[in-house]
Amino acid sequence: MMSKIVKTIAGISFPFITIYGLYVIAHGHLTPGGGFQGGAIVASGLILLLVAYGTDWIIEKIKESHLSILESLGALGFIGVAFLGLIFGGMFFTNFIAGTSMLFGGIPTSTAANINTGGTLPLMNFAVGLKVIAGLFAIVLVMAYAISKEEGE
C-alpha cells in the first residue's frame, strides 16, 4: 500500500506498459522480442499495480487459481499447436500454416513487416505470452500474499 502519488502514476503508466507488452508479443515474428519478453513486460506492469495498490486489493480482483488455469491454457496451446504440426505436417513442431492461405500463412516478399506472415509462430507466441504473463504474475502474487499475511499476524 503506497501513497496517492505512487498509485496515480502506476495507474497512468499501467495501460501503456500493457499495450507495449502486447505489441511485443503480437509482433514476435517481425520485430525483436516474442512471447517470453512481452509476457515479462506485461507481468511487470501487473506487478507494478500489485506493489502500488497492495496485495489485498489485487487478490479481490484475481485469484492465483485463475492465473494457474491461464498458465496451463498457455502451455496446452503451445503443445497443441505443436501436435497440430504433427497431425497436418507430419512432424512435431512443423510449421504447417506457412505458405498456405490460412491466417498468418503469408510468405514475406521483402524485409517490410507484414503481420499476416509467420505460420504457427504468432500462435505459439500468443500461447507462450499468456503462459509467461500468468506464470510470472502468479509467482509474485503468491509470494506477496504470503508476506502480507505474515506481517498482518
Binding site: 505458405g99 524485409t111 506472415t117 509462430l121
Partner: peptide, 11 residues
C-alpha cells in the same frame, strides 16, 4: 523467410 514465413530469424 521462405520456410517459416517470419522476418525475425531469431523467433
Amino acid at each position: 523467410q521462405n520456410e517459416s514465413g517470419a522476418n525475425n530469424g531469431v523467433t
